[in-house]
Simulated scan of single mutants.
Amino acid sequence: MHTQSSFAKQVTGSLYLVPTPIGNLEDMTFRALNILKEVDLIAAEDTRHTQQLLNHFEIQTKQISFHEHNTQMRIPELIDKMIAGENIAQVSDAGMPSISDPGAELVEAAIAAGLAVIPLPGANAGLTALIASGLVPQPFYFYGFLGRKATEQKVTLAGLANREETMIFYESPYRLKKTLATMIAVIGAERQVVLARELTKRYEEFIRGSLAEVSQWAQENEIRGEFVMILAGNENPELDTKINETDDLSIVDYVNQLINQGNKPNDAIKVVAKNRGLKKQQVYNIYHELDDGEE
């Protein structure tokens, strides 16, 4: 057990998790600006992108790259710097660190090292879209980006189809039409959905309707910008849903079930990891009997 007093005097440095605007620079908070000015280093997902933000607010703090491709190399370096007394702010390109962006592994390592992890409140695309969607705002289930492959999406959506919570997804403009088509095939054309496009920016737009109606809109209009998809929950969930059927399966049996349904092993492992809240490597090790730990 460990208790953290975030604002007590620290012998070591601290990790600050600093949200950045999702579009409108006026959404940057005074506290976030002060932290970025005061820390010794900013760990940024894309240093070129973050430099534009820093230049706009005349912030001189040095940056270091921290993204999904250098996470394992960079974490020990950042932890050593904080142990030596440096304060580090971690930012993603837009919104909250760790939410469909790098950051969770650094937070985990910092806590394991006994360092203070201090979060700042700020912009988040999913919640911003949710409160204006017109759908039931709570309870909600945040998923983020679905897998790129249609087969993986179908398996995932089949497991989500009977959830009663409003669901939040992120999607790129390049995959939006296909994702909507897959949702119709798995969930049904009448389920209500809201697309939120270019949130907080000049061309912010909300498209509300059934999956069929919104899919038709996507076919008839030019798709631009990043999208948040808010999907209504199932008002009449069945008792024998696929998600309930898989709850009682072991990791190995769950992976085998997906493979028997025609999915590739790696795709099945990825889906199981996502649905069970595990790391893909953990599921891989369990399935291939490389991990002596419990499932």
Rank of each mutant, 00 (worst) to 15 (best):
A8C: 11
N234V: 10
Q60H: 05
R148W: 02
K81E: 04
A104W: 09
T200E: 02
M229R: 01
T246R: 11
Q72R: 14
A218Y: 12
T61I: 12
A84S: 14
N256D: 09
R163F: 13
E294H: 02
V136N: 03
L127I: 15
K149G: 01
G122Y: 10
M229K: 08
E164L: 09
E204A: 04
T12R: 11
K81V: 05
N24T: 06
G85C: 14
P21W: 01
K154C: 03
L54K: 11
V283M: 04
H2P: 00
I88L: 09
E77W: 11
I251M: 00
H56S: 07
R48S: 12
S133T: 01
T200P: 05
L25I: 10
L15E: 05
E235L: 02
Q192P: 03
I184W: 08
P97Q: 04
V255M: 13
N34T: 08
F66D: 06
K178V: 04
K149W: 04
R202A: 08
M96D: 13
E86L: 15
N236V: 07
Q63W: 04
K149L: 03
E152A: 03
L160I: 06
G225W: 01
T241W: 02
I64L: 11
I35A: 10
D292V: 01
D40I: 05
I187P: 02
T241D: 07
I259N: 07
L199C: 07
E190H: 08
G114Y: 14
F145G: 03
Y203S: 02
G144N: 10
F227A: 05
I251Q: 06
L278G: 00
Q282E: 01
N285R: 04
A109I: 08
G233Q: 01
T61R: 06
A104M: 11
E245P: 04
I243P: 00
E26W: 06
S215V: 10
E235Y: 11
E164K: 12
T246L: 10
R31H: 13
Q281N: 06
K270E: 06
N263R: 02
A32L: 03
I59N: 03
E238N: 14
L231T: 06
W217H: 07
S6F: 15
A104P: 05
M28I: 15
A8R: 13
Y141V: 04
T156V: 08
D247F: 11
I42C: 09
D291H: 00
P139R: 02
K62Q: 15
I286D: 08
S6R: 14
N24L: 03
E295F: 10
K62R: 15
R31Y: 15
R224N: 12
S100G: 15
Y143S: 09
P237V: 00
E245L: 05
Q257G: 14
T61G: 05
A132M: 10
I131W: 07
S215D: 14
P137W: 09
E238D: 03
A132K: 09
L278C: 05
S65H: 11
I88K: 01
S100F: 15
L176N: 13
A181V: 15
H2Q: 12
E171N: 04
R224L: 12
A116F: 09
A129C: 07
R31K: 12
F145H: 07
P119T: 09
E165Q: 02
P237H: 00
